[in-house]
Design a protein around this nucleic acid. Structure first.
Lengths: 134, 134
DNA sequence: CTAAACCTTCCCGTCGCTGGAAGGTCAAGC
DNA sequence: GCTTGACCTTCCAGCGACGGGAAGGTTTAG
């Protein structure tokens, strides 16, 4: 299987696969006589694994750790669980930040007439200490 | 007022102020005889504005538009309102994605024993089609 | 007189890729 | 045999929004 098929079946792009090889996340591929990368099913499995791990929010360093666990038959599942719980907490933190931003925006929008005139509660809110309506 | 005081009072860093000048987001500062940047209150106001706009999630291109509105006495407040509502919708979209990721992680964590053994529902979940527990 | 705390410009690194250039290879159709 | 198009390779550049740090000039306090 060459790279574009591996890409199609894993959900990564060919560029991403090469990049992951570059940074040592996946092992260098075996090469055909013409120099093309050749993949077997076990490498495809790792690419799928990475695609899924990325999709649930892990960064590449975390993916590296997860993949190391996946490869290690003597692993302890509590390590994987810890990574997941830490990531979940970080996501929650980020979610809270975004929710706070969104609430601020919604409040601003409610206070703004949003018409053809220049008077604008939003811009007044953003400009601190200029004698706006707060 | 030189750059570090402007930074302290606006909430931006000196680096960020210089960067914003570089990319044309704020006007080039007046220079003192020694070459130091000098700021007056109106420029400080713009920096505060930018710091706030960044804090509620606007990217620099959006900040540029907001600042243009802020500077334009003939603006129409509906334009600012539209930017805010669009940003709010984008944030909501991102929040939904992060919530979905977090839910996936929590589900994985619940299904994993998290002990000293190698059997791990998390890793099985991440590895697609390898005969895991789904 | 010296030390520290400013300031300047410049370039590199971050993260996770994506795009594109320049070139080699392969399979199909004429 | 020839062309066309779809692959593949490597390498380099860029994104956003800065931060770090080098190398050097300036100012202020003691």
């Amino acid at each position: 299987m060459n790279i574009s098929e591996a890409a199609r079946r894993s959900g990564l792009s060919s560029k991403t696969i090469r990049y992951y090889e570059d940074i040592g996340l996946i092992a260098p591929a075996r090469r055909a006589d013409n120099g093309y990368r050749q993949y077997d099913p076990s490498q495809l499995d790792e690419m799928c694994f990475l695609a899924r791990a990325r999709n649930v929010g892990f960064d590449l360093e975390e993916c590296r750790q997860l993949l190391a666990l996946q490869r290690d038959s003597g692993r302890e599942s509590r390590h994987a669980r810890q990574l997941v719980l830490e990531k979940s907490a970080k996501l929650q933190q980020r979610i809270d930040e975004l929710v706070a931003m969104r609430e601020t925006l919604e409040t601003m929008a409610r206070r703004c007439r949003g018409d053809e005139g220049p008077e604008c509660a939003i811009l007044d809110d953003l400009a601190c200490g200029k004698g706006g309506s707060r």
